[in-house]
Design a protein around this nucleic acid. Structure first.
Lengths: 240, 240
DNA sequence: CGTTCACTTGAATGGGATCAAACTGTGTGG
DNA sequence: CCACACAGTTTGATCCCATTCAAGTGAACG
């Protein structure tokens, strides 16, 4: 699969998270930068926060990947999402002041702490920042609705295709290759997230590979035919 | 099933939607009231907004019930949620300035229009209102994550039980009976939402009734054994 | 070099979908 | 008033996809 496809294409300097400061002028940008707290390194399998932890920080992922999951009353855990560099972590906790899920690093990662109370103070002076923040939260809502809800009524193949397409487009918007990346999570984690058995995930990946839609070897993934993958996600062409 | 269980127990006057003005003082309350636009009546099966419509209003449901759904590229529609009086509608659109889904009244209903730009102006002066708004959006995120994502890996029986428990608790927080209410949606709509066939929904309801967990006749529903229903939702006791 | 963890592949089972048919309440028009 | 149409619902029989159980492969690491 060749050299690392994970180097961003973008060269522009980014003082903070990809999305939050969009549309801010220099002065505002600096004010935002000032409240961005210390960087924190999270080693693989360490948790950034746990369920029930008091909420006072949002986290901008600088480097690496995370998963978030809830633990049901019966003890089983349900992965609620995978987050990548450039995304914001912790918004689910704003409602209750307590974290609703646990965030664990899938690899050695790095985040910036954003004290939420200070962010709220900035909102009072910087409508543009507030608007951008609302935009992000709103997108989070439709992401769940759009991607996740429809999973419910999808076949296993559709689910997996939709998952890959979703990853692809998120990498793309962050300046990485849309067609070539590493899966940072295990097959089991994918299965847990999508509501599939590990074996099904494995079988489906093999099948897509056999049909020339993707190439996959361990965690290395290449989307050979994104249009077809998209159409599979939409329910067409079971691809034999 | 006797007389209407849908009269709220609460007697306190509520100038606007249940949740938004929580914690505001009288003066702020009045300012909020002033931007609440005209009431709009939506007859059954009419849509409040359609996919792609420009977003400039949030809607507080005063009366009635709605469903929201997306139309997939393949033409099929996927119900993304059911909303009841006291809930806020339209937040998914903030991110893109376009509505991501269509909202249709399940019965003759009434909403208040809340011009979002004016709400944003209020945010600048009223941190408490802003905080409350963030709380609602955040809850919306965890609702999706919590309820919907876990649906994915649930059995049909669990899904339906979880759905009923969810409705129950939402009615409860809004002052209605937690154990007795009408289903405002068809079996087909429930099935669409949960990713089940109509026949399955019907069968499962019959089964729960046979086992004395619920009583159901047409749209009239009574939850006879809420604890058991909860435990079914969590994956215990398949109830024969 | 052997243990371990993640993954793959095969065969059998079962839950929910699908197909088919009957039933119910509601509204409509004669 | 009844006859009819119709949409929503229920119930039964069959089928199929995804899970489960089981076994095996392969890379990573001490």
């Amino acid at each position: 699969m060749g050299d690392d496809p994970h180097r961003p294409r973008r060269t522009k300097k980014e003082p903070v998270s990809l999305c939050l400061p969009m549309g801010l002028d220099e002065a505002d940008m600096q004010r935002l930068d000032q409240i961005i707290g210390r960087r924190r390194r999270i080693k693989r399998d360490q948790s950034l926060y746990r369920m029930g932890d008091r909420f006072d920080m949002l986290y901008a992922i600088r480097l690496g990947h995370f998963k978030t999951y809830q633990v049901n009353s019966n003890g089983s855990q349900q992965i609620t999402g995978f987050q990548m560099a450039g995304e914001l972590l912790g918004m689910d906790a704003i409602g209750t002041s307590r974290h609703q899920c646990e965030a664990v690093a899938l690899e050695d990662s790095e985040v910036c702490e954003i004290p939420f109370s200070q962010l709220e103070e900035l909102f009072q002076d910087m409508p543009v920042l507030l608007r951008q923040f609302h935009r992000i939260m709103s997108k989070e809502i439709s992401r769940e609705q759009g991607v996740m809800l429809t999973l419910n009524s999808m076949s296993a193949q559709q689910k997996l295709a939709a998952f890959l397409v979703n990853l692809s487009s998120r990498y793309a918007t962050r300046g990485y290759s849309a067609s070539r990346f590493q899966l940072r999570m295990t097959r089991e984690e994918i299965g847990n997230y999508l509501g599939l058995a590990v074996e099904s995930v494995s079988r489906l990946l093999s099948n897509l590979k056999k049909n020339g839609v993707i190439d996959v070897s361990h965690r290395d993934l290449e989307l050979l035919d994104l249009p077809t993958l998209r159409s599979i996600a939409l329910g067409a062409d079971p691809c034999s």
